[in-house]
Design a protein around this nucleic acid. Structure first.
Lengths: 217, 217
DNA sequence: AAACATTAAAGAAATAATTCTTTATTAAAA
DNA sequence: TTTTAATAAAGAATTATTTCTTTAATGTTT
């Protein structure tokens, strides 16, 4: 079926690998602080509690080569990881739905270190419109349509109630958004080429609670 | 990496399945609203845009049996899913680190529908101590140790800065916490039996930004 | 009442990801 | 300069997950 309309399966980096990369980045920044210039994959593996060959495979996606008996250059690796992940660029985003979770993400300053900049938030609630959270203005939802072609925003952050998620997502796509970070529980049906990253809190709660339940009985 | 103990692989539900279950639950609640009494796996698959046999396999973990030509009973399925996931119980939790993300999660009312109740939050910042966010009190961090044996809290939500995450996690474990929902980028080293659910925003940003980058070139 | 169409359920195959193994490189020491 | 120890890199095997296929059950229709 749809299973690989992904023409470029060949050079696509596996999702589990991508998810681990920020962990390496955070670790390497610590290591650099301590003045370490070179670091080997087995050392990283030991410190992070994971398999050294996996570390090698993961880091290989950045194209950085290590030297036997020496390891990787810390600074080079950090730079390559940031570059590969896009954390050292400015990735502009719109956020829709300034409710609890939306407001939270607006206030969450760590976005900056991910290269994410939320340019504006949108909501339909007149009580919220005009407010500013974390330096980000909340605009009337309809303003979305007038702003989109003046700007070059590719990322939409979706924190609306579930029942409007699909409609809002379609609006975002019509506004030229290429990627949607979906925090709702709704399963979005969008054109193939739109990148959707689902980050539903309930999914993680589900895994956590179930594992806890497994352990207790 | 040993994210989870491996002894009971036999009857352990795969993580991808667990993550999909809340999606079914949300969908079924909608379907029930519309008055549908019975629903078939192929119908669910069509609506949710996923493989019908996968739907069958996923729902099988709840033990609910469907009838050929009829499908599953909507109400029965919803109840079984809530029960299986623990969403209809009250799962008490402590939160440590009432910064941006922590405050966000405290304000996030949807926790209730996941059966999560944050009893109290802890922080070392004297400016925050005494405040209330979303009805949850922020207490002095040290109070954690005096509270733990009077209560039966099994879940710890970790939203501290990265560099104290490991120490706080160890404190939580010493206080009898069995499961940690880790929102930091730190890789936690804890006893095997502790359940750790990593939900690092940067991991999801990494996947999103990289896929966007792949698509653009 | 019997045949039929539909679908759940179980099992098999394929795919993706991780772990393990081997090989080859290279800097340091003798 | 040669040997050695350590490690990166590439490839193989294992494991887990998803997709595909088959079988059996059941309500509906004729």
């Amino acid at each position: 079926m749809s299973e690989t309309g992904k023409y470029k399966t060949k050079d696509r980096v596996p999702e589990p690998t991508l998810k681990r990369l920020p962990g390496y980045l955070y670790y390497l920044e610590q290591v650099k602080e301590e003045g370490t210039i070179n670091i080997s994959a087995p050392t990283i593996g030991k410190d992070l509690g994971c398999d050294p060959t996996q570390v090698v495979k993961d880091l290989a996606v950045t194209g950085v080569k290590g030297k036997p008996r020496v390891g990787y250059n810390t600074y080079e690796l950090i730079h390559a990881l940031e570059d590969f992940l896009g954390f050292n660029r400015i990735n502009e985003a719109f956020l829709v739905g300034a409710g609890n979770l939306g407001a939270a993400l607006m206030a969450y300053q760590e976005h900056q270190s991910l290269g994410l900049r939320i340019l504006a938030a949108f909501d339909v609630d007149s009580k919220k419109i005009g407010q500013t959270i974390g330096g980000i203005h909340i605009l009337e939802y309809n303003k979305l349509f007038s702003l989109y072609d003046r700007l070059n925003v590719k990322i939409g952050i979706l924190t609306t109630p579930n029942h409007v998620a699909q409609d809002v997502a379609e609006d975002l796509v019509n506004c030229g958004i290429k990627a949607i970070w979906n925090f709702t529980s709704a399963k979005l049906s969008l054109p193939e080429e739109i990148i959707v990253q689902n980050t539903s809190m309930s999914s993680y709660a589900a895994v956590l609670l179930r594992r806890l339940n497994d352990a207790e009985k």
